[in-house]
């Protein structure tokens, strides 16, 4: 799948995160802001990369503003943003797990 338009998902409430995505031709750029970046920054980025890889997303600008979300919330919000930013959503349920 390919990100073809800007899309947004999530909120800036506590325990949530805001995800903004935009098209890029051939690179994946992840910008991560988090209140817990010292402790969990690497783990959040790993979850983001894993979630995108399972969706077959290898290019795009991914901007994440984290407010202390659990990993499952990060996955859900990122998948929602991708679903909104692609032309044809083809992910099956196993790719979302």
């Amino acid at each position: 799948m390919k990100i073809v338009r800007e899309a947004l998902a999530g909120t800036l409430e506590s325990s949530d995160l805001m995800v903004r995505i935009a098209p890029r031709d051939d690179e994946l750029e992840i910008v991560l802001q988090s209140e817990v970046i010292q402790q969990f920054g690497a783990q959040i980025e790993a979850v983001v990369r894993d979630t995108l890889a399972k969706l077959g997303i290898f290019a795009g600008l991914i901007v994440i503003e984290d407010k202390g979300a659990l990993d499952c919330v990060v996955r859900a919000r990122l998948q929602t943003a991708v679903q909104r930013g692609v032309d044809a959503w083809t992910a099956d349920w196993s790719a979302l797990s």
């Binding site: 998902a9 999530g10 659990l70 499952c72 919330v73 996955r75 859900a76 919000r77 998948q79 929602t80 679903q83 909104r84 979302l96 797990s97």
Partner: peptide
């Protein structure tokens, strides 16, 4: 609706 569905999908597995 799409966002909530995915959030609940992942939360149920906690």
């Amino acid at each position: 609706k799409d966002s909530a569905r995915l959030l609940v999908f992942h939360t149920l597995k906690l």
